[in-house]
Amino acid sequence: MSGALLDVRGLRTVFHFLEGAYPAVDGISFTMRSGEVLGLVGESGSGKSVAGLSLIGLIDPPGEVVEGEVLFKGRNLRTIGESALRQVRGKEIAMIFQDSLAALNPVLTVSEQMVEAIREHADVPLPAARERVIAALRQVGISSPETRIDQYPHEFSGGMRQRVAIATALLNKPDLIIADEPTTALDVTIQGQILAEMQTLARETGTALIWITHDLGVVSELADRVAVMYAGRIVEIGGIDDVLDRPCHPYTQGLLDSIPAENAPGSRLRQIDGTAPSLAARPVGCAFRLRCQRAGPLCAEREPDVTEGPSGQSWRCHHPIPQGDRP
């Protein structure tokens, strides 16, 4: 895939504990084109956040990226070295975190930290950098940015802080933004505002977006493609319409089934029984088999490989949901 903006191959991140190394991200592979929005969906502990951090080398001990390649515009980010990676981070690839209060420096004004983000990567005079910051804040819907720029993060509401984080990510016109649950802590009306702005910005600037979330509804409305993670692996990936309308993996189907709006009001929800296995206690074979209604003897013996369908949708399952069975 030469036209890919991002080509991730067999990325594996482990966490070292006294008892051994446990894989939080267990060999994930995917590609992204410029301007594409990829939803990365999973429950807590599925490895989706670790996957996002692993892409740009932000894993701290006891975590370690041990295998795989992250080819970004043809360069392998895993081997270019820390100083080159620093130039990529915040310039070509930006990240937005769930907790904007923790992501912003509380003792610096918004202006100070955003100007730093510009001048770290380019020799821009201070007044010009300030102008760019004001323009970026206005772009994400912050009113009277000329005065708000000199305020501290605690003077902003949660929604406004997340806008500041987004504006910071956009400052250097990155090719890729990795957003980790950026709207999870926000109210639905504020989430709607942020999604609207992200969508417009991605379209206008051609920025590709990895949107990490547990909310399939948000992904459905925002993404072009979706990857579903379970126990450190991408168990299904494909175009948004393929995966959400014709899921092949039983876990994807289970997630869709447990959404209240997909069940008649007052009826019993079709739940997935059990809980996701912890990092240290993943079962042999398919990690989902203990919660899966389609599991057979083969699932306990060996882990399923990736199968790819005609439309580019692929899944890891020995007993995928047959597409002929659908109404």
Partner: peptide, 10 residues
């Protein structure tokens, strides 16, 4: 504003 899996590229 309720996100729905039925709506795409809203």
């Amino acid at each position: 504003e309720i996100p729905s899996v039925k709506r795409r590229r809203r």
